[in-house]
Design a protein around this nucleic acid. Structure first.
Lengths: 190, 190
DNA sequence: GAAAATTGTTGAACAAGTTCAACTGTTGTA
DNA sequence: TACAACAGTTGAACTTGTTCAACAATTTTC
């Protein structure tokens, strides 16, 4: 059953009773998203938080010069969030696009706030997940500052082979913060 | 009184009763740290989480090549954390050094875990603070990817003038991810 | 207050990464 | 199946940032 992936994911992060687990999961609804479709586009308020059941997404921004900048990719068991837009009801700077036909479990803002209020364990769950994510973002920033594009490319394709294999070089380049021409030259070198 | 800064900070993030606020604050102890002294050095387990009352700190790592890479600076009202080391009792990759004579409120791991267990509002507080920090780290990464060193320098000195004024150019360069020679050239340009 | 250590500046040669343009190879799609 | 759209490759000229070395200015320390 589709909710099992979410349940397993939650249990990896916290200890939780099965009643609480059921309650949490009952608020999530499954949605299918076709390849190239958007779950969120820049300028709109993000009304959901999503957990990827199957498929792959790219989360990116487009800057003033028109360059696409990929924040991260989300495959199975990753979250699709824009905390700032979702919590503060602000227009988002992000685009969330399916790279292949995908399935996500979505929860809306009202239900999420209800969960926070009624189940303290949900606060704990998202506190722990946020802190883990924070550590990961700090490490990525440091890597960006002290490694060359080639080292970052090798790290990415080694660390996330399943995701990397689904991506075009253009998408990988926008994640690494380099042009796709330069990525092409890097790959030729080795 | 010294705890007032912490109380005000907490109240900016969540709604909280004054009893709970008192309870939380009662676990923090004031510590003075002399200029150039370390609150944490790379390889050790970080036993505290700190809230800066006065002074300024630099949080940085040293990579294999011996280059210092500054993660962030923490002045009044900022937190001094290494979540990964503190929560998982792992040796830290970070150094936390006072840039001037400073004062911090510290809480140890046992007390922090007690707070999490006894006061649900503490989970919420750190969930919210972590999520805000996460958003900030994502934005910084995007800025690093699409702006030049000069733009990043101007952004930093405009956004954090109080912190920037306390720092040497070498420290600022290590935060921006450039050499201090290049920062010197950037400053000459304008 | 002098010596030592650190920080900041400058230049020249170099390396990393971009831009633009032209071309090739793939993947949709009518 | 053909054609359009997009992804990938390559080269030349360019910009951004690094490295190293020498020197000047400032701060620390005894």
């Amino acid at each position: 059953m589709v909710l099992n992936a979410l349940k397993e994911h939650i249990k990896k992060n916290i200890e939780i009773s099965s009643e609480d687990l059921e309650t949490i999961c009952s608020y999530f609804k499954l949605k299918s998203i076709k390849k190239k479709d958007f779950l969120l586009t820049q300028g709109n308020i993000y009304k959901y938080e999503g957990f990827v059941i199957d498929g792959c997404f790219r989360i990116f921004t487009i800057d003033k010069k028109g360059n696409e900048n990929t924040l991260y990719f989300a495959a199975k068991d990753w979250w699709l969030m824009d905390i700032d837009s979702f919590m503060n009801q602000k227009p988002s700077n992000l685009n969330i696009q399916a790279l292949e036909d995908s399935q996500v479990l979505l929860i809306n803002r009202t239900d999420k706030l209800t969960l926070y209020q009624t189940l303290p364990v949900v606060e704990k769950l998202f506190r722990i997940m946020s802190q883990k994510a924070l550590v990961a973002w700090q490490r990525r920033l440091i890597r960006n500052q002290c490694e060359t594009a080639k080292q970052r490319y090798l790290y990415f394709s080694k660390t996330y082979p399943n995701i990397a294999s689904k991506l075009t070089d253009k998408q990988i380049a926008s994640y690494l913060g380099i042009t796709h021409e330069f990525l092409s030259k890097i790959k030729k070198q080795q």
